[in-house]
Amino acid sequence: MTIGHHLDVLYGLPAYTFPRPGNNPRPVEPDAPAWRITSDVYDAGEGWTAAFARFCAAVDTTRVKALIVGAWEEAYEDDSAAVIEALVAARDRFPALRAVFLGDMVGEECEISWINQTDVTPLLAAFPALEEFGVRGGSGLSFPALSHGALRRLVIETGGLPAEVVRGVGGSDLPALEHLDLWLGTPDYGGDSEAADLEPLLSGARLPNLRHLALRNSEMQDAVAAAVASAPVVARLEVLDLSMGVLTDEGAAALLGGQPLTHLKKLDLHHHYLTEALQERVRQTLEPGGVEVNLDRGDAEEDADDDGTVWRYVAVGE
Rank of each mutant, 00 (worst) to 15 (best):
G298I: 01
P260D: 13
G298Y: 02
A223H: 01
A125G: 14
D303L: 06
E302I: 05
N116P: 07
G12E: 06
P200Q: 14
E194G: 15
D60M: 00
V83P: 03
T285G: 02
L240F: 03
A145H: 12
E250S: 14
A129P: 06
G191R: 11
L174Y: 01
E238F: 01
N209E: 15
E109A: 09
S80Q: 06
I156V: 15
P21Y: 05
V291R: 00
A58M: 01
A89F: 07
G245K: 11
S172N: 08
L154Q: 07
A145L: 08
E301Q: 12
D303V: 07
L286R: 02
P33Q: 08
S113C: 13
N209M: 13
Q117Y: 08
H6V: 06
L182Y: 05
N294A: 07
E301N: 05
D188A: 15
Y189L: 13
G134M: 06
N209V: 13
D192A: 13
P25D: 04
D188P: 07
V9R: 14
G258L: 10
V293M: 01
A229C: 05
V293I: 03
T2Q: 14
D43T: 08
F55D: 04
V239G: 02
A99D: 05
A229Q: 07
G290A: 08
G47A: 07
L286E: 07
S147T: 15
W311P: 03
F52H: 01
R136S: 14
T61P: 01
P175E: 04
N209Y: 07
A96Y: 07
A129M: 09
G317S: 12
H179P: 06
G47D: 14
A86P: 01
H6T: 05
P260W: 10
F55R: 00
P288Y: 05
G107K: 12
S113D: 15
V282I: 15
V239R: 10
W48Q: 03
T17S: 13
P30G: 10
G185I: 10
L286V: 04
V106R: 08
G257T: 13
C56R: 14
D241A: 10
L295H: 02
A126K: 04
G149V: 15
L202V: 11
L141E: 10
V59P: 04
Q279P: 09
F101E: 04
D8M: 07
F94E: 03
V106A: 08
K265R: 15
G290F: 04
D299Y: 09
R91I: 05
E199C: 04
E276N: 11
T262W: 03
V169T: 03
R98N: 03
D299V: 00
R36W: 00
A66R: 05
D43A: 13
A235F: 02
